[in-house]
Design a protein around this nucleic acid. Structure first.
Lengths: 172, 172
DNA sequence: GGGGATTACCTGTCCTGGACAGCAGATTCG
DNA sequence: CGAATCTGCTGTCCAGGACAGGTAATCCCC
């Protein structure tokens, strides 16, 4: 048990690894759960919704751009787009500039979801930020951004050597 | 890459702050990605690892307790335990106090993973906290905890009504 | 211009895991 | 004793991450 810099261990599990990572895990889990629950009411899944938001914000996009934005690989993006297309929220256009690429654009049916989704986001934000003051929100936002940048920075580089004793043993 | 470092896309009605949820999503995604990548070296998946950590911290547990801790339902917990058992990291004991229940305990092979996993957590924490000062870490941790508590609070109570226009349209 | 490398996407497969429903054994309490 | 309840297991459906392999379009250098 390293760390525990200031003795904050009111939450079970905070003792073992890094408290910040643990807190991120826990927050992420329940936040995604909450978001998923809210989005369900609109018949969407989180990834689908994020993809749609991207389209609303920036107009038709290539799948590669969407993939990078969402953090999924190209295969996963293909499937998400396919589901949205099957649902009629999205359609594919040939990219006039590059016939290899396909542009993904919202359909009118997809656009109709926008206000609904934005309402959900407003709800989510309210529930998440709760009773925080404006200053607290700013602080939280800054912390989240800082952490994100740290992780993004490592994303690029780090290779980490591990014994890998029984590698893959529990992966099947 | 995804640019938009401070570009909080203004969602209508989000003037007071819509971006916190967004920041949580983004941080959660890349952090989980990073954690998953690190854990892979040990042949584990995030959920498996969290379950093991729980066992290391608190000794043999019932599945119900593990399920609540991990946030999974009982069915999911069963499967995770089964995989860990198949890998030899965990075993099941009858609960002497209640023969309906089974206690899940680590095996020696599972315990051997502990230092490995703790090393990974240390790494993860380092990469996540990066070059933050001690004060910054404390601030970040406080913000994360505050957000978590807010979401937890809503988890319990709120039912939130949505029009549910085309419910399920994109869910198949 | 021609031909190989690269890009962008699609497909199929395997696995993890969330949600849900139904089931069996054990326990508890009237 | 007997019914309600609790605990865990199973099976099904689906979303999605990782990976490998394939095809068509494009790029680039000779």
């Amino acid at each position: 048990m390293s760390g525990d810099p200031d003795g904050l261990r009111q939450l079970p599990g905070a003792a073992a690894g890094g408290p910040i990572s643990h807190a991120i895990f826990r927050l992420a889990r329940i936040h995604q759960l909450l978001a998923g629950r809210l989005l369900r009411a609109a018949g969407l899944h989180p990834s689908q919704e994020l993809l749609l938001m991207r389209l609303w914000e920036s107009g038709p996009q290539r799948q590669a751009a969407l993939a990078e934005e969402l953090g999924t690989d190209s295969a996963g993006t293909t499937r998400i787009v396919q589901r949205l297309e099957a649902a009629g929220y999205v359609r594919r256009l040939p990219d006039p500039a590059d016939r290899r690429a396909t542009l993904v654009a919202t359909t009118p049916a997809g656009d109709e979801l926008r206000s609904c989704v934005e309402h959900i986001w407003t709800q989510l934000e309210e529930l998440t930020a709760g009773d925080m003051t404006e200053a607290q929100r700013r602080t939280a936002l800054a912390s989240l951004r800082a952490l994100e940048e740290n992780v993004l920075a490592t994303e690029a580089g780090s290779r980490c050597g591990m014994p890998a004793a029984k590698r893959g043993a529990a992966r099947r």
